[in-house]
Design a binder for these strands. Structure first.
Length: 560
RNA sequence: UGGGGCGUAGUCAAGCGGUUAAGACACAGGAUUUUGAUUCCUGCAUUCGGAGGUUCGAAUCCUCCCGCCCCAGCCA
């Protein structure tokens, strides 16, 4: 994980400064998800930041569920979030917390606020509260209930807790300043009645604290030193500080805001991700096209690659959009190191070697990784009828096409040089049915003793000795870099070819025992992993994680 | 038009009064290659949103201007 930590950024600078000034001895951060959805790459950025900083400065990072709205939160999200954080490679050890763990203490803090005449029960309706709040440019007005006596406030608040009122009848508000230019300071609501069972506290409470009240106090209770959050909470910082200042808390954490991550060709909004799932644009929360951690995991991304990515994109306050190439580069870099090489043919084209005896087979040695001898070798079976990639043959190839064409000689990887002699076409459609070639027996293994060179090397599998497979080719989910661009319906920008399923692929026999999640490089094509949900030994299903860098494809594209 | 933020290369991003303005991705060349992969070289901001000012010296300090983002949930 070493190299994932080097980059300097403003938050780190603040922390270093705090340590040097002896303000703080031990750094404590927290990752505070609301369990109302699945984690995505944006969360990964926050997880890596919080856990990474704790790690780097020998501190601690807590996992804390911000579960103050039982109407939206569910246990299944809590479970999946824990799984995702673990998968990413972080450990909260014994520090698993929930804001709901603090409901009693939070209630006491609220009482303390009332006693200090810094909070009151307001009985305005929701609409009225909005009207009294004023607008961005006009100040708000004081609630008629603002001057209730402490005794009355205490009594009412207790009765709210006891369940004597209905949802919306009363709220508890901080008494700050209705004319503040910062709307968050205009007597914000800190408790509301919500007669909803909570996933953890069940029916114990019918009043729940709001985010602004809960978050800062939870941080203080846990002794958080640096409370890192996203930019939209910048306006809430004065309130965060105000609440801590009014109350007798163990410490005063420092809130620091950083910019969310935006990634090209995808979306990070929980709400919109939810629409994609609910309206079946994708097949579920773990659809490999989604930026959810469950999705990219199934797609074949490794935790290392995601951590690397998060370290590369940096931390700043500038709103930015990350080039997809950065993510792609991270996964290629990691898989290039780790993935065993193998041969698979996506769109098979039959090729017959006419001077190879019928029924004869030969076992050839193939390296599992050309740069890593220690990964060993395997046998691949060569025979008279093989499959090559349809794309690797052209009847009228252009100059720069280094593959097979009439009369051309190429190398079959780890096997022999072959020369194309004939093309067999379908009489009616004109489609190429098979290619007839001859091989040069002197080139076994792929080298010519006479030193002659070939321009291209093709991957292949034996017709008889390969196994069928389905392959899912994934591409970007959206056509636009920013699918949420002004007045667009983001679903209009969905890439209709984000998933292409190939049912008639052939892969080499060594893959027959591959298991869920195993990742391979199909030489010359890309990285593919066994789908963890749908694949079975009888029917292998691979997900394409990412293609190899393809300068030939780029060249072709340029010409058009 | 209130308040809070942000502007350094195509995209991220270091930089904190004196540097030839880091690094990554992308891009363009070249070398090696039994993956058009990998790896390896080389190039890629006389300039930091703009204009003024302070200073021997400014991306860094000051002033004004311009552009973009966020805030009016009993969501987080």
């Amino acid at each position: 994980m070493e190299e994932e930590k080097k980059a300097a950024h403003f938050i780190k600078n603040i922390i270093i400064n705090d340590i040097e000034n002896k303000k703080i001895s031990k750094i404590i951060t927290r990752f505070p998800p609301e369990p109302n959805g699945y984690l995505h790459l944006g969360h990964a950025k926050s997880i890596c930041l919080n856990f990474g900083i704790a790690d780097e400065f020998s501190g601690e990072c807590n996992l804390r569920f911000d579960d103050t709205n039982p109407a939206k939160e569910e246990q299944k999200y809590i479970d999946s979030i824990m799984e995702d954080v673990k998968w990413l490679g972080f450990d909260w050890e014994d520090r698993l917390f929930h804001a709901s763990d603090y409901f009693d203490r939070l209630y006491d803090f609220a009482v303390e606020l009332i006693k200090k005449n810094r909070a009151y029960v307001c009985s305005l309706s929701g609409d009225e509260i909005r009207q009294y709040r004023g607008t961005l440019t006009t100040p708000g007005r004081n609630s008629p209930f603002r001057n209730r006596s402490t005794a009355e406030n205490l009594d009412l608040f207790e009765r709210m807790k006891k369940g004597e009122f209905n949802d919306g009848e009363h709220v508890l508000r901080a008494k700050i300043d209705m004319s503040s230019p910062n709307i968050n300071m205009r007597d914000p609501i800190i408790y509301r009645i919500k007669k909803t069972a909570h996933p953890r506290t069940k029916d114990k409470w019918c009043i729940y604290p709001m985010y602004d009240f809960t978050h800062c106090l939870s941080d203080a209770i846990e002794g958080i030193t640096h409370s890192l959050c996203t930019l939209e909470f910048e306006d809430h910082r004065p309130l965060y500080d105000w609440i801590i200042d009014q109350l007798d808390t163990p410490c005063h954490p420092k809130q620091i805001e950083f910019a969310r991550m935006n990634l090209d060709f995808t979306i990070m909004s929980k709400r919109k991700l939810n629409i994609l799932v609910e309206k079946k644009y994708v097949k579920g929360w773990d659809d490999p096209r989604l930026p959810t951690l469950a999705g990219i995991r199934r797609r074949g991304f490794t935790p290392q690659s995601i951590r690397k990515f998060c370290s590369l994109i940096g931390i700043s306050k500038k709103e930015s959009r990350i080039d997809l190439g950065v993510l792609e580069n991270c996964i290629r870099e990691d898989l290039n190191e780790k993935a065993p090489r193998v041969m698979g043919v996506l769109n098979p084209l039959k090729l017959i070697i006419e001077n190879w005896p019928e029924g004869q087979i030969e076992e050839l040695d193939a390296m599992n990784h050309p740069q890593k001898k220690e990964m060993g070798t395997r046998k691949v079976i060569f025979s008279r009828e093989i499959f090559i990639e349809r794309e690797d043959f052209m009847e009228n190839p252009p100059k720069k096409f280094f593959r097979l064409g009439p009369g051309r000689e190429v190398r079959l990887r780890y096997a022999y040089f072959i020369t194309c002699r004939k093309i067999v076409k379908d009489d009616n459609t004109g489609e190429i049915k098979e290619i007839i070639c001859t091989y040069d027996p002197a080139t076994r293994g792929g080298d010519a003793p006479d030193g002659r060179k070939v321009k291209g090397t093709l991957h292949w599998v034996s017709g008889q000795h390969s196994i069928p497979a389905k392959v899912r080719l994934y591409d970007r989910l959206f056509l636009k870099e920013d699918p949420e661009e002004a007045n667009d319906d983001f679903t209009d920008n969905i890439n209709p070819e984000s998933l292409v399923t190939l049912d008639n692929c052939r892969v080499e026999k060594s893959l027959e025992n591959a298991g869920a999640g195993d990742t391979f490089q199909f030489e010359r094509l890309g990285y593919f992993c066994i789908d963890s949900r749908d694949s079975s030994p009888d029917q292998l299903i691979f997900n394409r994680t990412i293609t190899l860098r393809d300068t030939w494809a780029k060249l072709k594209k340029k010409k058009h």
